[in-house]
Computed example of a mutant assay.
Amino acid sequence: MEQVRVGLIGAGMIGLAHAKALAEVPEAELRVVADLREPAAQEVASAANVAQVETDWQKVVADPSLDAVVVATPPFLHYEMAMAAIAAGKHVLCEKPFAHSPAAADAMVAAADRQGVVIADCSARHARLNPTYRTVKALIDQGKLGEIYLINHFGRGRRGRAGIEYHPAAKWFLDRSKAVGGIGIDWGVYDLSLIFGLLGDEVECVEAMGFAVRGIDQVDPGTPIFDVEEHGGGALRFSNGAMVLWDRASACHMDTGSVTRVCGKRGGVRFEPWSRQAQSLTYYSDVVDGLPTDVEVPIKGQDKHGGDHPHIDRDFVAALLAGREPMMPGRVAAKVLRAIFMIYASAGVAELDEAVPA
């Protein structure tokens, strides 16, 4: 395969981002855009100079000329579309969250393995495909932190709820049956994609206790259904013994921003995971006469990185052509989803082992 021929399902805001990104990847050819709303599909297709538009997504997965499908629809549709694409022998890049339940995620991964196709998730977008992550990961891989025993990660906004202050037209974000969850899912998948990457993708989340809270204010959501959390998180223990303290809010009465602290037995790091302006991170260790010290480690390439969105499509195409795993393979995306559902189950807002649809 010298070029990956791609079909895009979903012509919303994120579908447009995928279309524009794929149009800039020489090794990819976006051939068709599908959406129930033909004008939306036409708009996205025009932005990427794509001639073919469909209103039936099943025509895309059945198209024998395509190698891969990008599923960029609301989360409750991911499972059906991804499974159909896999059954048709297509590689799949699935928007986040990966699936509507851990059981569905596991089924998607198993189906892809049986078919011998690649399935990947988009939660690497902000978490793993940027210079900050690469800098921290290099320190860990070089043994500069030693055994990691604690990660403290928070990301909070005072008012930035999807479907209300952010992208207010997309009210499905506020409906758990369609969005899967609130901020714990919407941005939690990025948080835990980062955390799994730092700890090593082979680890498992073995225990969790958390919270998922809504009712931060008396806002009118503009829709009768508003049943997703605005602030969530908790404590997670991993199979390697590490503890993670996680806190994510789209609405809260607290200071805002996002900071990650990673504590190891030989050293530690503090960094701003989502900042593309930060030029360094802080590394703490005993390196000067056995005394505690901290140094600023440069984050190389920050000024050349650009926006996060295009990198997920570039990585997916490059992985297919190189025969390697994408930065967020489905098998790890399924672990991330299960960890979040463990938090949800602890908080009493979702069942951990929801059945897969027939």
Rank of each mutant, 00 (worst) to 15 (best):
residue 249 A to V: 10
residue 249 A to F: 12
residue 231 H to W: 15
residue 284 Y to D: 10
residue 223 T to H: 13
residue 245 L to E: 14
residue 280 S to Y: 15
residue 233 G to N: 04
residue 215 G to Y: 11
residue 279 Q to I: 09
residue 268 G to K: 00
residue 274 W to V: 08
residue 230 E to M: 10
residue 278 A to W: 09
residue 222 G to S: 06
residue 217 D to R: 00
residue 290 G to H: 07
residue 228 V to H: 06
residue 251 A to G: 09
residue 267 G to L: 07
residue 289 D to T: 05
residue 218 Q to G: 08
residue 297 V to A: 01
residue 219 V to S: 09
residue 277 Q to P: 00
residue 236 L to N: 12
residue 252 C to G: 10
residue 270 R to G: 06
residue 289 D to Q: 09
residue 223 T to M: 01
residue 232 G to F: 02
residue 269 V to R: 02
residue 255 D to H: 13
residue 244 V to H: 06
residue 288 V to I: 11
residue 278 A to C: 09
residue 273 P to I: 07
residue 230 E to S: 12
residue 231 H to G: 02
residue 254 M to L: 12
residue 225 I to W: 04
residue 276 R to N: 12
residue 284 Y to H: 08
residue 260 T to F: 01
residue 283 Y to G: 04
residue 215 G to H: 09
residue 265 K to I: 05
residue 293 T to Y: 06
residue 244 V to G: 02
residue 264 G to H: 05
residue 258 S to R: 05
residue 226 F to T: 03
residue 224 P to A: 01
residue 247 D to L: 02
residue 215 G to L: 09
residue 292 P to C: 01
residue 212 A to E: 08
residue 243 M to A: 05
residue 224 P to C: 04
residue 266 R to C: 00
residue 292 P to Y: 03
residue 237 R to H: 13
residue 214 R to W: 09
residue 214 R to F: 07
residue 227 D to S: 06
residue 245 L to I: 15
residue 210 G to W: 08
residue 293 T to M: 09
residue 212 A to V: 06
residue 250 S to G: 12
residue 263 C to P: 00
residue 289 D to L: 10
residue 263 C to N: 11
residue 214 R to S: 15
residue 232 G to C: 09
residue 265 K to R: 08
residue 220 D to E: 10
residue 256 T to L: 11
residue 264 G to R: 06
residue 262 V to C: 02
residue 245 L to N: 11
residue 292 P to R: 06
residue 279 Q to D: 14
residue 210 G to D: 10
residue 270 R to W: 00
residue 227 D to V: 10
residue 244 V to R: 05
residue 273 P to V: 07
residue 296 E to A: 15
residue 275 S to T: 01
residue 268 G to A: 11
residue 240 N to L: 02
residue 290 G to W: 10
residue 220 D to C: 00
residue 243 M to R: 07
residue 275 S to P: 02
residue 233 G to W: 05
residue 235 A to M: 13
residue 291 L to P: 00
residue 274 W to I: 06
residue 281 L to R: 07
residue 226 F to S: 10
residue 284 Y to N: 02
residue 276 R to E: 06
residue 286 D to K: 07
residue 286 D to R: 12
residue 255 D to V: 13
residue 270 R to V: 14
residue 287 V to D: 07
residue 257 G to Y: 10
residue 211 F to M: 03
residue 212 A to W: 04
residue 239 S to A: 04
residue 229 E to S: 12
residue 288 V to W: 03
residue 272 E to H: 10
residue 210 G to F: 09
residue 242 A to C: 07
residue 269 V to I: 10
residue 232 G to P: 03
residue 240 N to F: 03
residue 291 L to W: 04
residue 213 V to M: 12
residue 273 P to R: 06
residue 263 C to H: 14
residue 290 G to S: 08
residue 248 R to D: 13
residue 228 V to M: 09
